[in-house]
Simulated assay, not measured.
Amino acid sequence: MLAVALAACGNSSDDSMPGMNHGAKASASPTAPSAPAGGGHDMDAMKDMASDDGLAVQKDGYRLSTTSPALPVGKAADYRFTITGPDGKPVTRFSVEQTKRLHFYAIRSDLTGFQHVHPTMAADGTWSAPLAALKSGTWRMYASFTPAGGPGKGEDFVLSTAATVPGTASDTALPKASDTATVDGYTVTVSGRPMAGMAHPLTVTIAKDGKPVSDLQPYLDTYAHLTAFHADDQALAHLHPETEVSGSQGGPSLSFHAELSKPGDWRLFLQFQTAGTLHTAALTLNVG
């Protein structure tokens, strides 16, 4: 039995998950590699995944530097940062991944308040991420990118750092587990049995009014975008889509390549678009 809890959020009416109104053009997504054979955990793979959990501020000479360690409470603000390379200079050349040169995530320490935005970069390499109003507490800011030149050319990086929003903070507990939930009138069903340190398929099926949907629009080079954060330390994992974009509409079932580095609860954020509206579901997934 897959332990998954889903909690709905609206696009503009729920301020706990703002900043996710990014459209994308359709194009084919590459198929992710198949799960490895064998019944035991691959320890080398686990170490590789742990080293790429997005919790480091620097890796292989690349560093996330910010001038915004503190952000205002309750109002929109730009989070400004640079990615510096091994030579200490700001990186200005990035490869396009899922229609963007850089993906930026903000998540609160209790795994609420998720935002996924796409910053703009100035000529000097300074990025500005437009964040909607933030609640008081500790947040983590992630930059996901691939350098288009230099020693890290072609390598995927996820770097992150903490940010503080002043005021009195209180945590929200993760919801209880369930295989299905209603999100903005859509019923989302999740199936699969992910195990820590192993590659596994994960399938999401979406229906509305009891009927499978077939009008999912392309969003960031796929029919749905899925990101996961570990409940204990906020490690990040991007679950890669295996369902290729083959036209302007898709659904109802979507396949993902899931590699989660450690056991325990993960908070998943599924984003999909219909009729120009982006929907986001938050899922608590227990990984053995």
Results as ranks from 00 to 15, higher is better:
residue 252 P to N: 04
residue 2 L to T: 11
residue 176 K to T: 12
residue 8 A to I: 04
residue 21 N to D: 09
residue 182 T to F: 10
residue 83 I to A: 05
residue 179 D to E: 10
residue 147 P to G: 05
residue 146 T to S: 13
residue 65 S to Q: 12
residue 281 A to H: 04
residue 229 F to L: 01
residue 60 D to C: 02
residue 263 P to G: 05
residue 59 K to S: 12
residue 199 A to V: 15
residue 186 Y to S: 01
residue 42 D to I: 11
residue 84 T to M: 06
residue 213 V to A: 09
residue 233 D to E: 02
residue 28 A to I: 14
residue 57 V to S: 12
residue 177 A to H: 12
residue 46 M to F: 00
residue 196 A to Q: 10
residue 180 T to P: 06
residue 211 K to H: 08
residue 170 S to M: 09
residue 28 A to Y: 02
residue 234 Q to R: 15
residue 193 R to P: 01
residue 183 V to Q: 13
residue 126 T to D: 00
residue 241 P to R: 08
residue 3 A to Q: 05
residue 233 D to G: 09
residue 69 P to R: 08
residue 247 G to E: 05
residue 194 P to E: 07
residue 43 M to P: 03
residue 190 V to T: 15
residue 36 P to W: 05
residue 169 A to W: 08
residue 272 F to V: 14
residue 20 M to E: 02
residue 191 S to T: 15
residue 249 Q to L: 13
residue 221 D to R: 12
residue 258 A to N: 06
residue 85 G to M: 10
residue 170 S to C: 02
residue 244 E to F: 03
residue 253 S to M: 07
residue 202 L to I: 15
residue 170 S to P: 01
residue 249 Q to T: 12
residue 195 M to S: 13
residue 204 V to W: 02
residue 11 N to L: 06
residue 242 E to T: 15
residue 29 S to M: 06
residue 212 P to V: 10
residue 78 D to A: 13
residue 144 S to P: 00
residue 275 A to D: 13
residue 57 V to D: 03
residue 198 M to Y: 00
residue 17 M to K: 06
residue 150 G to N: 05
residue 90 P to Q: 15
residue 43 M to T: 12
residue 215 D to G: 07
residue 131 L to P: 00
residue 26 A to Y: 08
residue 206 I to S: 10
residue 5 A to I: 04
residue 228 A to R: 00
residue 33 P to W: 03
residue 262 K to T: 14
residue 245 V to P: 06
residue 121 M to I: 06
residue 91 V to D: 05
residue 170 S to Q: 10
residue 137 G to I: 01
residue 223 Y to A: 08
residue 13 S to M: 06
residue 74 G to T: 02
residue 129 A to I: 04
residue 134 L to W: 02
residue 155 E to I: 15
residue 239 L to N: 03
residue 197 G to N: 13
residue 115 Q to K: 10
residue 41 H to L: 11
residue 170 S to G: 07
residue 255 S to R: 14
residue 156 D to E: 02
residue 274 T to Y: 00
residue 81 F to Y: 14
residue 85 G to I: 15
residue 130 P to M: 03
residue 127 W to L: 00
residue 179 D to P: 09
residue 231 A to F: 00
residue 120 T to L: 01
residue 190 V to S: 04
residue 38 G to L: 05
residue 23 G to R: 06
residue 29 S to T: 09
residue 91 V to H: 08
residue 195 M to G: 11
residue 58 Q to I: 02
residue 118 H to V: 10
residue 175 P to K: 07
residue 185 G to K: 14
residue 190 V to H: 07
residue 123 A to C: 01
residue 151 P to A: 07
residue 82 T to L: 01
residue 147 P to E: 03
residue 203 T to I: 11
residue 65 S to W: 00
residue 129 A to E: 01
residue 173 A to N: 11
residue 75 K to E: 03
residue 247 G to S: 04
residue 222 T to L: 00
residue 24 A to Q: 10
